[in-house]
């Protein structure tokens, strides 16, 4: 069976899948990929199940080599991708030849994903292969690691899709929590009218947010009995700083939550660059449920949006600028995607 050898891995490179469910009662949160949509996009590009494990790269770098030909797909935050020095298109599937070196670097933050045909075949623990760093499950990948790959039933490469826009911040939808109304109406309005930036302090458990004005401390000194919390909850600590809880968040907490971001809007948060502003707005629970269901349907049909990576040469005005090899381009995709 094919193997992927890690030559170089920056910090925050982990194996991720959809996480492990069913252990909240034991204090173990679900974990899994920070940008689940990127997992679905990678699976669509390779024509395989979205539950397979892929490699998540948290804004650092990764160099790997396979001992046999391996289908790969690249999704999430765009990086500079080189196959033996030749640039590869992001948001696309490619064939990585045996012995070729894949170098990924240069992300502007966010989370990037390297998917392999058949998925990474690491041992399952409690029903999943993902590292859960906060719980001490698994570890960051490092140079010298060898990853077994699953059986790849697919053949196609050279597919691409246009990713759902989520790399420029913007508004995030949320619903009320049982504590939302502890905040006076004026404070809730101020929260939804504020602009927020991502604090440098962030990890797989949560993202601290920096408002463009004062914090949102409750001055009533309320103590809230510790209870279940969920990813997407916006927890306000005693000093008024909001934290959006993410994949590896704790399972219970006693700080008030002003709102809960919709799961389908979380990719926009985790993929926002440091200089992008984010805002929050309340929507009714019924509208939130409908938005989640609609997004689930869209993701299930994502393979309909695939198109071949190579365009008809007659349609390409600057033909001589291209190398006509599957998946190889002029090398400035990163720059063009970023604008």
């Amino acid at each position: 069976m094919a193997e992927l050898q890690v030559h170089r891995a920056g910090p925050g490179v982990t194996l991720q899948d959809m996480g492990r469910t069913g252990y909240l009662a034991q204090g173990l949160s679900r974990g899994g990929a920070m940008d689940r949509l990127a997992l679905v996009e990678g699976a669509a590009l390779l024509g395989q199940a979205a539950e397979l494990a892929a490699i998540e790269i948290a804004g650092s770098l990764l160099s790997v080599e396979a001992d046999g030909p391996v289908r790969i797909a690249l999704t999430g935050a765009p990086m500079r991708a080189l196959c033996d020095g030749a640039p590869l298109v992001w948001n696309a599937s490619h064939l990585l030849p045996a012995g070729a070196r894949l170098d990924l670097s240069g992300a502007r933050g966010g989370y990037s994903y390297l998917h392999v045909g058949g998925g990474v075949d690491a041992p399952e623990f409690l029903g999943a292969r993902s590292a859960h760093l906060a719980a001490g499950i698994g570890a960051m990948l490092q140079a010298g690691d060898r990853l077994a790959l699953g059986q790849d039933a697919g053949r196609a490469t050279g597919q691409t899709l246009t990713p759902q826009a989520r790399f420029d911040g913007g508004p995030l939808r949320m619903i009320e929590t049982p504590q939302t109304r502890l905040y006076p109406q004026a404070e809730r309005e101020r929260f939804t009218q504020s602009r927020f930036y991502k604090d440098a302090r962030a990890n797989r458990m949560g993202q601290k947010m920096v408002p463009d004005g004062a914090g949102f401390a409750l001055d009533t000194g309320l103590t809230i009995l510790s209870e279940a919390i969920v990813p997407g909850d916006i927890q306000i600590t005693g000093d008024g700083a909001p934290y959006v809880l993410l994949a590896e968040c704790q399972t219970t907490g006693g700080y008030p939550r002003i709102g809960t971001v919709l799961p389908c809007d979380l990719p926009r948060l985790v993929q926002a660059p440091a200089d992008a502003s984010l805002s929050f707005r309340f929507i009714p629970i019924e509208e939130a449920v409908e938005a989640e269901r609609a997004e689930a349907r869209r993701r299930a049909d994502l393979s309909r949006d695939l198109r071949p990576l190579i365009r008809d040469p007659h349609d390409i005005p600057d033909l001589l600028a291209y190398q006509l090899i599957s998946g190889v381009t002029r090398g400035d995709d990163l720059e063009r995607n970023a604008t």
Binding site: A25, S226, Q250
Partner: peptide, 10 residues
Amino acid sequence: TIGFAPGQPY
């Protein structure tokens, strides 16, 4: 209850 972190009892 068990919560916050894996296996952590109150």
